[in-house]
């Protein structure tokens, strides 16, 4: 996984609450058996005027001019500013894959849905929870100033505005550690293989039916 330490980038404000993962990446694109290539279909139904199909060249499709990411000033955005309950609904990891593939590295919102929040960390994407008022402020500033950028420092756990003001955010230590170092979770867990085996041995004695094989 790509490590994340610091990032500075243009902010795209998406002023809508309860953005669900069906909206982030519609189901017709989930048929891929790969992890990459989802970027052109990020927010497909909001972004294009026609109905998106898999395996189609999206660069030729009619764009919805009202959609925020289609505005020239947000073209190179890598920080998504969002509203409450971002990423709700389906557990599809294709949602963070699409955001990452498009070029986002950071998502800032007052709250996230649990599964989505968790999935972001596995893909080098940093979801940041800020207070509602702070998010409101950033929305106003990002909309008012073309080329508005934020600087995110995961080590220091801060988001800094162009005027130099900093907001701090919470992130749990394990996730922060893995993301800072680009660590693969599975490798970290397998360091505890002995403990997992010991758990299994003990459990097999008290609840043997849990270890009956389904392959008979």
């Amino acid at each position: 996984m790509r490590a994340f330490t610091q990032h500075q980038g243009i902010v795209a404000p998406m002023d809508r609450s309860n953005v669900d993962t069906d909206m982030i990446i519609p189901k017709q694109f989930l048929k891929s058996i790969k992890r990459t290539g989802f970027g052109p279909n990020l927010f497909d139904e909001l972004r294009y005027l026609d109905e998106g199909k898999p395996d189609q060249d999206s660069s030729q499709r009619p764009l919805n001019p009202d959609f925020v990411l289609n505005q020239a000033r947000y073209k190179d955005a890598s920080v998504l500013l969002a509203r409450a309950n971002f990423g709700c609904g389906s557990s599809r990891e294709h949602a963070p894959w699409a955001l990452e593939d498009y070029g986002f590295r950071v998502i800032i919102a007052p709250s996230f849905a649990d599964i989505f929040y968790n999935n972001c960390f596995k893909n080098g994407l940093l979801p940041i929870v800020l207070e509602e008022e702070q998010v409101d402020r950033l929305f106003r500033e990002a909309e008012a100033t073309e080329g508005y950028q934020l600087t995110v420092d995961l080590e220091a756990q801060t988001v800094t505005t162009p005027s130099g003001e900093s907001f701090s955010f919470e992130v749990d230590n394990f996730r922060r550690h893995c993301l800072l170092n680009g660590l693969d979770d599975i490798g970290v867990t397998l360091e505890d293989a002995e403990q997992i085996r010991a758990y299994e041995d003990a459990r097999r004695k008290t609840a043997p039916w849990l270890f009956n094989s389904v392959n008979q």
Binding site: S91, K122, L190, I196
Partner: peptide, 12 residues
């Protein structure tokens, strides 16, 4: 769970 976690559970 997400797909990375599916892999994690398969492996560990």
């Amino acid at each position: 769970i997400g797909t990375s976690e599916v892999e994690h559970v398969l492996a560990t």
